[in-house]
Amino acid sequence: MADDGGDQKFKQEGNAQGNVINLVVKDQTGNEVHFKVKMKTKLEKVFNAYCNKKGVEPSSVRFLFDGTRVSPGATPDELGMEDGDVLDCVIEQVGGR
């Protein structure tokens, strides 16, 4: 999984510190934001960048990777992510009735 790090450009970039993959963060309306992420980078960086861009509170959204809630401390490597994988950004659910 670590070695299919996208195209030439990424490979060159990634030579220094691990491979780089493309990640897509998709919100519930289907809008996508693309990120280039090193395999060893904590996803927190992606989340924060996404939240900043969208102007949402990080605590009010959850990031799911194919159903698994992704914690900010995890890295793509640990989660077995591959190039082009999609992270779902969903909004916190509450309910009380």
Binding site: S59, R69, S71, G73, A74, E78
Partner: peptide, 12 residues
């Protein structure tokens, strides 16, 4: 942990 051991879901 959810999935891999390093992916910790936390509760605040």
């Amino acid at each position: 942990p959810v999935g891999p051991a390093t992916n910790l879901q936390s509760l605040t």
